[in-house]
Amino acid sequence: MTKTPTKRLHEPPAASAGAGDQVAITAASPGRMVGYVILSLWRRDMMHLLRERSRWIGVIVQPLIFWALIGVGMGGALARFGGEGDYLAYFFPGIVAMIVLFTAVFATMSVIEDRQRGFLQQVMVLPSSRAAIVLGKTAGVTTMAVVQVSLTMAVAPLAGVDLLGVHWPMFFAALILGCAGLTSLNFSLAWVVNSTAGYHGVMAVVMLPLWVLSGAMFPAGEGWMGWAMRLNPMAYLVDGLRHAMAGGFSPDANSGAGFGLTVLAGTAAVFTALAVRTVARSTHNARV
């Protein structure tokens, strides 16, 4: 049949390709491809980190504003009722945890659209395991959090933190494990909810209350709230950061540093496994 005549708008591939089309390219085996996909997704997140300046405002500046306003306000209120100590200093580890939470939330929110009509579509049909999507995203978000928190620590002396006295290995261990767990958990939620509006709802109802119950703003009390805080993985992130900022031990923390890091490692492993399972078992919401 006669096809619709088309104007030749560029040279045909055979002519334009030149030596480039003759170059030998061999795809990696599905097993090795997992590593390449993880690395590529990490690299993509780093590109976004460097280019999207508005992200920095949302993730770093907003928590610091909260820290200043709530810290000064609550400090005044506590002093009025006879409280002692520096509330700005107490609150600072919680603000760092908030930066980690915001980084994980904003980065995983993009997964929803990305999967339906963006870059992740091509990753979903690669022959490699879809576990690579979770691991690549977790690696990217965790690196973002490390960079953003490291920069935020420049203002830590305003909260009375002695940067030379910080137990940095403990600090980064808590940061990395906590962020990996939060990212994986948020990834699973984003994947299952599969709508940006729904994800906002989950964040408001689940993640923000978890942060409030993390010991960021007040210590664990007795009764149900104390138990809720002990069962909250984010509380161990705050405790780990609090211990590390105090040089290895803080009397204000609700749990021991070693126990807290163990819990963070366990929850990171469980949430990552959950996210991998969620993605691997998922079927696309294909239109019929």
Partner: peptide
């Protein structure tokens, strides 16, 4: 990034990208 995910790097990657852009 697409080529990277398949394990194609370096000179082969650059040559292939130029071909695809062409």
């Amino acid at each position: 990034l697409t080529l990277h995910m398949h394990g194609v790097f370096g000179a082969p990657q650059r040559a292939r990208v130029e071909t695809l852009l062409a």
